[in-house]
Amino acid sequence: MNHVNPKWEFLGLTFNPSNILMLAVTCLVVFLIAFISTRNMKLKPTGMQNFMEWVMDFVKGIIKSNMDWKTGGRFHLLALTLIMFIFVANMLGLPFAIAYDHVLWWKSPTADPTITMTLAVMVLVLTHYYGVKMAGVKNYFLGFTKPLAFMTPLKIIEEFANTLTLGLRLYGNIYAGEILIGLLAGLATASVGGFLGAILPAMAWQGFSIFIGTIQAFIFVMLSMVYMSHKVQTDH
């Protein structure tokens, strides 16, 4: 349990090679899923193509519940990438964690606040970008005075609060899940009795973590699209 993160310094930047590794693995898995399922596509879909189309329709549904498709269509790829990336990232830490010489190498990349906050800041920056681009500079700034002018400070705070909650919610959920799985694994390896005692809770918690990981991926994308719709829509 007493793990530390590996650390590299390169070009004056601080890297956590475990994060890099897990990001690469996540991207690879997501890409393979997407790539394999879109080979040999037919108008009448079969097998994996069905799954991929279902995912795309699901993401489309998320976007459509926040804004009309004409506005939201351009965020489809972003939302699709986000949900697949976060879901796979959440799942990666579930089956095992690999530590070498007390250095934690294999984990969920989303169990690191740097990564989740990066994603959250990226999404929020994009909302502001599209807010200015699609609603216009005037409407973008006017948006801060709605519904009432005196709420402007609150609206500004809200932007930072949104960013923080979006990133830290994901981080907290996944990190907590990994800690508990680690504790249960520690208990299981401590003794025979501990192993017997840990089987059931470990299985239950892993199942629950799958659920949490799925829900968190969904929530992240849903909230991203909610924030996005607040910025890009002027009439509501």
Binding site: L13, T14, N19, I20, L23, L78, T114, T118
Partner: peptide
């Protein structure tokens, strides 16, 4: 972890 931030952005963009 500035490197991680850049790496995350890089990987995410690449994946997209």
């Amino acid at each position: 972890n500035t490197g991680d931030i850049l790496a995350t952005l890089f990987f995410f963009t690449l994946l997209m």
